[in-house]
Computed example of a mutant assay.
Amino acid sequence: MQMPQQPPVLRDRVLAALRQQPRATVQQLADQTTAGESAIRQTRRALVELERAGLAARQPGHRPQGGRAPDFWQPTGT
């Protein structure tokens, strides 16, 4: 299933926020760039698009005791 593309304006805001705060979580970026109920979902989609374009990289979260930790995102060198 292909996700709908996010408006370029949101992708640009997410990328700008990511460059200001490397190693940010989706929640942190959503708080900075969008408002409303679907903020996290929209931010996650924008990050996936940025990752596919080679502009962002995901680092999986890790908890030593197991469980799910949030992933961290960072801008790439391109």
Rank of each mutant, 00 (worst) to 15 (best):
T33A: 04
T33S: 06
L47P: 01
Q28N: 07
L10S: 05
G66N: 06
S38T: 15
P60V: 00
T76D: 05
L10Q: 10
Q65V: 11
P22S: 07
A39K: 11
Q65M: 12
G66L: 00
R11V: 04
W73Q: 05
E37A: 15
D12T: 12
V48Q: 10
A46Q: 00
E51L: 01
P60N: 04
T76Y: 03
V26A: 13
Q27H: 12
D71T: 01
G54T: 00
V9P: 04
P22N: 06
T25E: 11
A24T: 00
T34W: 09
R19K: 13
R68M: 12
R68L: 15
R11P: 04
Q20T: 08
T43P: 07
G54I: 01
Q6K: 11
R41L: 14
G67H: 04
E37Q: 15
Q42F: 06
Q5H: 12
R13K: 14
Q27N: 12
E51I: 06
P7R: 09
Q5E: 15
A35Y: 11
A57T: 07
A57L: 10
R45H: 08
P70S: 05
Q6F: 03
Q28T: 10
G66Q: 06
A46P: 01
F72P: 01
R45F: 05
Q59I: 09
T25P: 07
R13L: 14
Q20Y: 05
H62G: 09
Q6R: 13
L15R: 00
E37D: 15
R58M: 09
P75A: 15
Q74N: 09
L47E: 02
Q32F: 06
D71V: 01
E37C: 12
P70G: 04
R63T: 11
L18C: 08
V26M: 10
L18E: 05
R23L: 13
P7S: 12
A24Q: 03
R23H: 12
G67S: 08
V14L: 03
T43R: 00
T43F: 02
R68G: 08
Q74K: 11
P4V: 12
R58L: 09
A17E: 03
E49T: 05
T33D: 04
R41Y: 04
R68E: 07
R52Q: 13
R13H: 10
G61K: 08
A46C: 06
R11I: 01
Q6A: 10
Q74F: 03
R23F: 13
P8E: 11
E51R: 12
R68Y: 03
L15M: 09
A17C: 07
M1N: 12
Q74G: 10
Q6Y: 02
L47Y: 02
T33F: 00
Q5A: 15
